[in-house]
Nucleic acid binder design. Sequence first.
RNA 1: GGACCUGUGGUGCAGCUUGGAGUGCACGCCGGCCUGUCAAGCCGGAGGUCGCGGGUUCAAAUCCCGUCAGGUCCGCCA
Length: 605
Amino acid sequence: MCGALSSTKEVTMSASQLRDLVPPARGLRSHYVAAITEESIGQEVTICGWINKVREQGKQLIFLDVRDHTGVIQCVLPHQEGLRTEFVVAIKAEVAQRPDGTENENLASGRVELRNCTVEVLNAAEPLPFPLSDRLEVDESTRLRYRYLDIRRASMQRNLRIRSRVNAAIRRSMDQQGFVEVETPLLWTPTPEGAREFVVPSRLQTGQAYVLPQSPQIAKQLLMVGGIDRYYQIARCLRDEDLRADRQFEFTQLDLEASFVGQEDIMNFISHAMASVVEDVRGINLPEVGEITWRDAMDRFGSDKPERRFTTELIDLSKIFASTSVRALSAPTVKALVAPEPEKLSRSRLDQLIDRAKELGGKGLLWLKVIRNETGLSVESPVAKFFSESEISEVLSATQATEGDIVLIVADEWEQAVKILGQIRLDLGRHLVDGAVLDFFWVVDFPLFEGHDEHGNLLSAHHPFTMPNLEDIELLESDPLSVRSQSYDLVLNGWELGSGSIRIHRRDIQEKIFRVLGISEEDAQDRFGFLLNAFRFGAPPHGGFAFGIDRLTSILAGEDTIREVIAFPKTQSGADLMTGAPKPLPPTTWSQLGLTPRPQSPRSS
RNA sequence: GGACCUGUGGUGCAGCUUGGAGUGCACGCCGGCCUGUCAAGCCGGAGGUCGCGGGUUCAAAUCCCGUCAGGUCCGCCA
């Protein structure tokens, strides 16, 4: 999608705010277009940019719309051959008031025009392969093939400039809060667990490889041992995982870590940065960022990153069906959702929802349509006949559903049930939200562990250095799955912007955690010995956070995918359509690395 | 690894269900006209391997199979 006319985009940056961004002109130009106003009438100016449109009006009159990144202005000149769209020009001219009745209110510069123009063509241009107008939709692969042209479009200009301001606001906030920007290596070593990493074979030591960091996690903890106290970095992270609308191989995080502080302090640091960004980009004061516990988020919204901008919540029916004879509902947890816009749920749409529930790993989904008959409210459903009278009336009272409503029900293990219904809640309601609203909040009290691996060992929910909640430390051996961690996520509009935790700095607790994770001492030494060694020499208590700047920027820009806020993104299959990367390498390059590629990959054959 | 959607002059679409000549619309491009246009207008013109390969058929953009590319999602992403 590249439509730039949605309301969210208009609230992002007004014309007057844009004008504030216009830098002083230098070089060939005396003015940026947005700096030319009615106050400039009578002045001589030189503007530089691209011809946006040529309107020939006969032999004696041509209108040229000239564009720079700040705006478009009309130039009036007598007939002149050889001017075409997207030619690069410098125009020396006089600013004049437009004649009465010819003002254009759709143009910021529409009350003035340039006259007595001297047009210098700095460079010609062939006709473009696609129109640059934001009003016209263009296939994304075409845009990516000619990304340098796509970037000329107003929406990309705006998005990349918003991104720059996001970065600047973050740096300002971090600086104010006493954080030190430290760069960490890109060519590094594998980190424990987590995402698949990109590998860079070593030429000097063939057979060995560096790994590109999925995040600077370990590095920043080492900086705490090094006494940096408050570190941050706008860091590129690389993960060799499948791409999505909100995921690229390489993405950018604000990464920070601080010593001698607790969870609330870290959350305050981040909230300060967010407030700084929102104030800069949206011009509004961010209200205090609220909190919700993980348990609460899952129970009410079926997600650890709830979209709260529409109010439909999951309703617990487990008690009603605790001893039911409806076989599909005999499960530990029974959750219900009163569908928004039930009139849109045709029989076939409901069948799709059942398939969706199965796709999400569930056994299915029941639906009850609430109808009115002689005796009052009742339900219509393929499974209605299995329900007892009292079950139906209890469901109706628990859900407050009325005539015409459709109640969707999922029964399963608690986490499975809420997740499935939570996703369906999103599928049905996501389009109902007000795009201009920013709903920031913290999710806290995550569990320390999530389930077991194939060997029966516990799995870290965050990472193995996450500090348990000290109140729960006794439960580590007896009931580990109920141990809460000192970790926290920041959620914005149903997207997980980022997460963080207080780290373990005490050896005894770390050993205990490794034990329940099934990581032996040798194992630990082998995988992250350098970190454990560092911790032997006086590691301060510390914790940190990281959040995705691509996601934050795309939300602030009102875009649906992070590709819209990345200058040169890759496609879902990891290709760069402009350069053709990834490409085959010449045999000598492989052999220098001590590698032999498999003769033919399915892709290149 | 899997599911679904899309692929038609430079761009965006329609045509596909129900097979019958590359048929249509809008934008752009080229030429002409036009002295106040601004999504300019009017007239004329050029531009196509219907993603690719195979099959069915007298006949395929259309039906079937495969494949490639792009997208959305599941798995994956501590």
